[in-house]
């Protein structure tokens, strides 16, 4: 019951604080969003690549790609359109069902179109001029098999010329569009990042994320996983690139070495490159 209240409060916060949020421009982090938005009229293309590797056994690699166009509607509202696709190679990987027992050990190697996403970010407080930067975020995704809604609260702060801190709290609702009954799967995710600008163009930092999944209309917590790793960023006046390496450091329920492999791998790496127009 308490879990459902967390969801209700989080959705109300996202909806009440601003309406339709979306994604920032230049990214110092690849998992955590900062709270500032593109300037009015700003236009940017971003290419996302996320690599995931290694289950408890067998061979498993997964590449998630997102092509994104981002536009600043006003100085505090931006929108993005994504095209999403995935390549998975899997051999001898045993999936676990919800009871923790071995489900299957399929081999496959396939590309999947993962639908299109519309994302909105509304900046409320500036990370430069206010005590803390605040923005709200809404993303909707539709593919031939699934529908998703994601709401986030984005907090960040630029301290002096060198330090950037960011924290996001996100809830996500996912529906399987191919099955009748349409049970909703919920996710709750927290992301945090810290970066230090060595020179104005280059920074080093670290990111962390914790994701919890609640299937069957939030009936139970299926798993909770923690990732922590380093991050690098380079940006000049025209383009930028950011990369993060995130090994899984803990997962529950434990499916080997203290990690969980339900929808997760031992290691994730994400690279995002953006070009300004």
């Amino acid at each position: 019951m308490a879990r459902k209240w967390i969801w209700v409060v989080a959705i109300l916060m996202a909806g009440g604080m601003g309406t339709f949020p979306s994604n920032a421009g230049e990214r110092m982090f690849t998992y955590v969003y900062e709270s500032d938005t593109l300037p009015e009229g700003g236009l940017e293309f971003e290419q996302w690549v996320t690599y995931r590797n290694a289950k408890a056994q067998g061979n498993h690699t997964r590449w998630d790609m997102r092509d994104e166009i981002e536009y600043g509607i006003t100085s505090d509202l931006q929108t993005s359109l994504y095209v999403n696709y995935t390549q998975i190679f899997q051999e001898g990987v045993e999936d676990f069902d919800e009871n923790g027992s071995i489900d299957s050990a399929d081999t496959n190697n396939e590309w999947q179109f993962k639908g299109v996403s519309s994302e909105w970010i509304h900046n409320i407080l500036s990370p430069y001029d206010d005590p803390i930067g605040v923005a709200v975020y809404l993303e909707g995704t539709v593919s031939d098999s699934e529908g998703e809604l994601e709401e986030k609260l984005l907090l960040s702060k630029n301290i002096g010329e060198n330090w950037v801190l960011a924290f996001n709290a996100a809830v996500e609702q996912e529906w399987n569009l191919k099955h009748h009954g349409n049970d909703m799967e919920g996710k709750f995710e927290m992301d945090a990042g810290v970066a230090y600008k060595i020179i104005p163009q280059f920074s080093i930092g670290a990111e962390a994320k914790n994701q919890r999944v609640y299937p069957e209309n939030l009936a139970f917590e299926e798993h909770s996983v923690w990732f922590v790793g380093p991050n690098l960023h380079y940006g000049n006046g025209q383009w930028w690139i950011t990369a993060t390496l995130l090994p899984q450091i803990a997962g529950h329920p434990d499916q080997g070495n203290g990690l969980n492999y339900d929808d997760n791998e031992r290691i994730e790496a994400r690279l995002i490159a953006g070009i300004n127009f």
Partner: peptide
């Protein structure tokens, strides 16, 4: 005065 989008 600041200009939104050109703060830095």
């Amino acid at each position: 005065n600041n200009i939104a989008g050109a703060t830095l």
